[in-house]
Simulated scan of single mutants.
Amino acid sequence: MNQSSNKHFEILDGLRGVAAVIVVAFHILEAFALGKRNEQIINHGYLAVDFFFVLSGFVIGYAYDNRWDKMTLTGFFKRRVIRLQPMVIIGAIVGAVTFYAQISPTVFPLIENTPVTKMLLVMLIGFTMIPVGKSLDIRGWGEMYPLNGPGWTLFFEYIAYTLYALILKRLPNIILMILAAIAGALLIHFAVTNPLGVIAGGWSLDGEQLKIGSLRLAYPFLSGLLLSRFMKPKHYKHSFLVTSALMFTVLAIPSLGWKETAWINGLYEALVIIIVFPLIVYIGSNGTIESPKTKKLAKFLGDISYPIYITHYPLIYIYTKWVVDEVLSGKTSYTMAAVWGVAVFGSSILMSYIFVKFYDEPVRKWLTKKFLRS
């Protein structure tokens, strides 16, 4: 395919934002169903992460496959670090600033007895994207990034970028297809054999969680990379509306199995990752937005997509603590929970927009000028 480095996928940007906003809503509602997947509203919202991995594979392949005659490995990694790391730092800072507002022996048993020096050490380590193990778990949830849980997906993103730059970019399509088929088969096997019937996990630095994270990364990234190589330009009308509606539908659908029939839900999730998400990226990459208002909406969603994803979770920690300690115990009404849930949702959007316009974009522009002058 004759790729153009100038082509901009406005629909894919918008879809990334749609998925990120759904993740925020999912996490807000998750506070009411901790450990009870069958009661979760927007039940499959966590699969948005797998969509992000498909999107990453597509964008990386499209943007870089034909540039390696002019670009070094150092240049590639500089571009990735400049794109991701400024908001990683902000996410860790927001997590640190709000950390002691999350004290709850019921939900987060370790916070109350965590000294400030240890918390700050975890923050500084988080700036570098180096994951931490049990000895630095300051929350009690076993997260590799205890101040900002969703950072685990960036950990796997960096693994994907490294594999792409060192190995995958050199492989012929047939080998990538074989690897994708194997990865898809392993994903289906895990989905239908694990007792919970969910493709969720990857956030802890232990063998089982690393296995789950790797399974969630492998097929989506490879399928996105293959899509970037096989894409044939077409034109689909109303593709942003159609793909956004499809995205919401597959993520919001209720659990399809429980206990003895959990494999049904697992199979559903595997098929969404293997078939539906690549289809959404394919349609989105071949569509255009005609309406000026829709263009603005897609741009806004694209602008806040990464910032909202990497900064919203500290607010979720606070909200989850409050819901469990106050609402589920009967001290506060569900009406107030709904009001504060909407407030958290709106605050996440506002915070991310402020960060992207007054921090992320200026910092990335300065870093690009300083380190990527060519």
Rank of each mutant, 00 (worst) to 15 (best):
M1R: 12
Q3G: 14
Q3N: 11
N6C: 13
K7W: 04
F9D: 12
R16V: 07
R16M: 12
V21A: 06
V21T: 10
V23R: 14
V24R: 10
F26V: 04
I28L: 09
I28C: 03
A31V: 00
F32E: 14
K36D: 11
K36F: 04
E39G: 10
I42P: 04
N43C: 14
G45P: 11
A48H: 04
V49N: 07
N66K: 10
D69S: 15
M71H: 08
F76E: 06
K78M: 10
K78G: 05
R80E: 05
I82P: 01
I82Y: 00
L84A: 05
Q85I: 08
G91D: 09
A92F: 03
V94C: 11
T98W: 04
A101H: 08
A101T: 09
N113L: 03
T117C: 07
K118G: 01
M119Q: 13
L120V: 14
L120H: 04
L120D: 11
L124N: 08
I125L: 12
I130G: 13
V132N: 06
V132M: 15
V132S: 06
K134S: 15
S135F: 02
L136A: 01
D137C: 03
D137Q: 03
I138A: 00
I138G: 00
I138C: 10
R139Y: 01
G140R: 12
L147G: 02
N148A: 01
G149S: 15
G151A: 15
L163G: 15
L163Y: 02
A165G: 12
I167A: 14
L168F: 01
L168T: 06
K169H: 00
L171R: 13
I174V: 10
I175F: 05
M177Q: 13
A180V: 07
A181H: 14
L187P: 07
G197I: 00
G197S: 00
A200V: 12
G201I: 08
Q209T: 08
L210A: 09
I212D: 02
S214P: 09
L215I: 08
L217D: 02
A218T: 08
L222K: 13
L225R: 00
L227K: 02
L227Q: 04
S228V: 01
M231G: 10
M231Q: 15
M231V: 09
K232A: 11
H235D: 10
H235N: 10
K237L: 02
L241G: 14
S244D: 07
F248Q: 01
T249L: 15
A252K: 12
P254H: 09
S255Q: 13
G257K: 09
K259S: 05
N265H: 07
Y268D: 00
Y268G: 09
Y268S: 03
V272A: 01
I273D: 04
I275C: 12
P278S: 06
L279R: 05
I280D: 00
V281Q: 00
G284T: 10
E290G: 15
P292Q: 12
K293R: 15
K295N: 15
K299Q: 10
F300C: 00
L301T: 06
D303G: 07
S305W: 03
Y306E: 05
T311A: 01
H312D: 01
Y313R: 07
P314A: 03
L315G: 07
I316Y: 03
Y319P: 06
Y319N: 08
V323F: 06
V323K: 05
D325L: 02
K331A: 14
S333P: 08
Y334R: 09
G346C: 15
S348F: 01
S348T: 09
Y353S: 14
F355G: 04
V356G: 02
Y359C: 08
D360V: 13
